[in-house]
Nucleic acid binder design. Structure first.
Lengths: 140, 140
DNA sequence: GCGGGACGGTTCATAGGTGAACAAAATATC
DNA sequence: GATATTTTGTTCACCTATGAACCGTCCCGC
C-alpha cells in the first residue's frame, strides 16, 4: 500500500509488508482464473451456501458495507457469475444466486488459493508456526 | 480487506487479518490529525527530505504508480499541505513542496504513528520478536 | 542539427473500499 | 388500524490504487 518509511520500528512495517506481498500473490493467482479477492469471496460464499443469499448477508460475511456489495454484485452480474433474484418473502430484499459459470470460477479460484496457501505454509518452519499464531492472535 | 472464509489454513488468514486490523488502527490514529496513510507517507517524506521532490521520485519512494501520485498531490494541494512548484532545471518535472501546515501535520502524524507503533511493539513478547522478524522476512 | 527514443506528468477507465442520504418495505408500538 | 421505527438496497461523493494512452520535454546518436 504505502511506504511509511523512516527508520521506525521495523517489526510492524515488516508485518504490513509481508501481508501486502501475500495479498499480491493471492490477487495474481486469482487473476489467472478471472477473479479478484473480492469477487472470489462472494462466489465462494455463494457456492458454499448452496442457495441465494441476501446482499446484506453477503456484506456481513465479507465484512464490508452494503453499498460496496451493491457494486460488487453489479460487476459479478456483468461477468455472468451471479444473478440478482427477488426474495418472495421480503420485497425489500435482493438475493444473489450463483450461476453455473460462477460455480466453475469459484472452484478454479479455490484451487488457485490453495496453491498460494500451501506455498505459504511451506515457508513457515513448523517449529515457529505456533509462535506466529499466538502473536498474530494478540494483534487483533 | 475481505473474508476469504472457509476452514482453510488459519495461519495465512491470521496474518492478513492482523495486518488489516493494524492498518485500521493506523488509519484511525492518523484520521484524528486529518491525515490518511497515503497522505502521511507523502508529507513525512517531504518533511524528511527538507526540499521539494519530483512527483515521480515520490511515487517511487511510496511504491506506487505515477498516476496515483498525481491524484494524491491534487488532494494534498487542496488540503493546503503541499504546493506544486516548477523545476527550473527540467521543464517536464513537477516538484511537491511542503507547506508550513503540511509540516505541522507531518509532525502530528508522526506522533500518532508512534503511539500505535509503541502499542504494537508492547503486544509482542520480546522473546518472540526475533522469530517474528525472521518469519516475516521469509514471506517477502 | 535533427530524428527518435526515453522520461515525466496528466488524463481516463476501471476496481475496490467507505459513509451519508434516500425510498420502499417490513415491524413495532400505541 | 395508524403511526413511528428499523431494515434493505441503491445512489452519490469521496478516497486510494492500477494501467493504458497521451503530450511535452529532454537527450542520444548519427
Amino acid at each position: 500500500m504505502n511506504r511509511p518509511a523512516g527508520k521506525a520500528d521495523p517489526v510492524m512495517f515488516s508485518l504490513l509488508e509481508a501481508a501486502h506481498a501475500l495479498e499480491q500473490r493471492l490477487e495474481s493467482a486469482l487473476a489467472e482464473v478471472g477473479l479478484s479477492m473480492a469477487k472470489y469471496g462472494v462466489v465462494s460464499q455463494l457456492a458454499r451456501a448452496g442457495q441465494p443469499l441476501a446482499l446484506g448477508e453477503l456484506a456481513t460475511r465479507q465484512s464490508c458495507v452494503r453499498s460496496n456489495m451493491t457494486q460488487l454484485i453489479d460487476r459479478l452480474e456483468a461477468d455472468g457469475l451471479v444473478r440478482r433474484v427477488d426474495d418472495p418473502g421480503d420485497r425489500r430484499s435482493v438475493r444473489a444466486a450463483i450461476t453455473r459459470l460462477g460455480e466453475e470460477r469459484a472452484a478454479a479460484g479455490a484451487r488457485a488459493m490453495k496453491r498460494v496457501q500451501d506455498d505459504f505454509a511451506a515457508s513457515i518452519p513448523p517449529r515457529d508456526r505456533e509462535v506466529l499464531i499466538r502473536m498474530l492472535a494478540g494483534v487483533k
